Structures are given as structure tokens and as C-alpha cells.
Simulated scan of single mutants.
Amino acid sequence: MNWYTFFKRGLFTPAIRVLLRPRVLGREHVPRTGGALVAANHVSGWDTLVVPAMLPRQMTFPAKAELFVARSPVSWVVSRFLKAVDILPMDRAGGRASASSMDVVLDALREGKVVGIFPEGTRSPDGRMYRGRTGVARLALATGVPVVPVGLRNTRPGWRRPVVRFGPPLDFSAYAGAGNDRDVLRHVTDEVMAAIHDLSGQRYVEAYANGVKTALKEGRSIDVVELDRPGQGRVAPPVPGSRS
């Protein structure tokens, strides 16, 4: 038994079960072997704890690279812990550093690991679902791994029990040859978000959460459009090699 397994089974998962009493549905949808992306909505800081605790396999998350730098005794402990449980360092500065960080995530998926991702890129400012970033599509198309959608409810602290619903894996291998086609990346991302939306039951906003958060901080009003579900009104791009 490795350190991660000991920590998860002996401490982490029991603590989450006692503290939050989450209800978990659909864990049979998580592939038992091989790489996979676990994509979830993001409404609370607890999400990053609830999902890996309830997942039947070991899962890793990308985390900002600054957390891996030991500048003090506390940060040394944090950095050692993150490395011990196989969290992936992600450089957010842009350019070559960010590209190299993405390679780390790609390597993990190709090695058969499960990687968790929040396609919205940040927590929802108001409990609604926001537009997904295309990083989830880029990772899925580059590696060919399935995407397991996860719908989270009630993970904000309160009297209601959190609900974690795993959905059937999504296979986008038909678009593997599309490269960086923007229409394909948006379609795949919207399909992932639509599956998460169906599991979470949230209202959907056709806007990026970061933009809304910035506007709120600056005291600006911002007009947003609510749709029935992600991708509404968009036509799926043709599959590469098809005659459509």
C-alpha cells in the first residue's frame, strides 16, 4: 500500500464521509483502468476534496506551480504533501512554461492516470454553471482518453447533503484528427459541459465565470444570457473524414 492509498483510505475519505455525508451515484461509470479525465462543475472549495475522496481510483489534479516551492516550513510541508499524493504542477504564467505544464498533464493521462479538471476554470460566483474552457477538449483529443462527467450539488457548507453524480464516459475519439480546430474544440467542450449540466441540474450562463467575477469586483454590471443547456443552438462540426 503506497502513501496515497493509505492517506485516502485511512484518513481522507473517512473524514469527508463523516464531515459532509455525501451521497454518491454512478461510481460504476468510472473506468477501472487506463487514463481518464474527470470533469466536474465547480461551486465550492470543497469540490476539490469531495471528488477525489469519492472516486474509486486514485486521481490527481493540476495545481498552481507556486505551491510546490518551499519558501517556509509550512510551504515545505505543503509542497512535500502535494508531491506525495501526485498532484501535478501547473505554471499559469503563459508561454513555454504553461505549455510544459500542459505536457505534464498529457503525460499523466497517457500513463493511465486519472486527472481531475474543472472546465469552468474557477468557482461559480453565484451557483450557476458557466461556459467551459476548451482545455478539457484539448486534453481529451490529444490523448484519446474518455471524459467522465461529474455533477456536484450542495457542496457549499450547509445543512443539505452533497450529491456527487458520475455520468457515463464520453468518447471523442472520432474527432482525434481535428487538431486545434476551434469549432471542434468548442463542440467537445460544450458536450462535456452539457453532460455535467444534466447531472448537476444547474442553470446555465453563456459567459465565462472569470469575466463575471472581475465585473463584480469592479462594481460593474454585466449582461449574461441564460440558455437551457451548453451548446444550445450550435451545430456539431462534421467528423474528420466523413462525407457530411
Rank of each mutant, 00 (worst) to 15 (best):
L227A: 06
R71T: 15
E226S: 03
P168R: 10
S124Y: 11
H42W: 05
V78P: 01
G45Q: 04
S75R: 15
G94I: 07
D103M: 14
T13Q: 14
T48A: 15
G167A: 02
S124G: 12
G167I: 01
E218V: 00
P119D: 13
F166N: 05
L199C: 04
L170S: 12
A215V: 00
F6H: 13
G158E: 05
T5R: 14
G231I: 12
G116V: 06
L11I: 15
L227Y: 10
A93M: 05
G158R: 03
P237F: 06
M59P: 02
T33R: 14
A53H: 02
R23T: 15
S244P: 03
V188F: 09
V224A: 03
Y204W: 13
R133L: 12
D91I: 06
Y130W: 08
V205D: 05
E226H: 07
R57M: 04
Y204L: 08
M54D: 02
H187L: 00
R131A: 15
G34I: 02
P237M: 05
P22N: 02
V145I: 11
L55G: 05
D190P: 11
R17M: 08
E111I: 06
R9E: 14
V150M: 11
R234S: 11
A15H: 05
T60K: 08
F68C: 05
F61G: 06
M1W: 09
D107N: 08
T122Q: 04
A70S: 09
S101Y: 03
L185Y: 11
Y204N: 05
V147E: 11
L216S: 14
W46R: 06
V114P: 03
P162K: 00
D86L: 09
V163Y: 09
G94E: 06
V224K: 02
L152M: 07
G241H: 06
F172C: 08
L37C: 07
P146C: 11
G10S: 13
T33V: 11
L106C: 01
G10F: 07
V188C: 09
P238Y: 12
F166V: 09
W3E: 00
N154T: 10
R80I: 01
R9N: 12
P31M: 11
R186A: 13
P73W: 10
A108K: 05
T33E: 15
G211F: 10
P146S: 12
I222L: 15
Y130D: 03
G45M: 01
A209S: 13
F68V: 06
R9W: 09
V18G: 04
Y4G: 04
R27I: 08
A137Y: 00
V212K: 00
K64Q: 14
V105S: 02
F12I: 10
V164A: 01
M90L: 15
A36V: 14
R160Q: 15
S244E: 15
N41P: 04
E218D: 13
G241E: 06
L141M: 10
R123G: 09
V78K: 04
D223F: 00
L19Q: 10
F166S: 07
R123K: 12
P240H: 06
R243Q: 12
R123L: 14
A36Q: 11
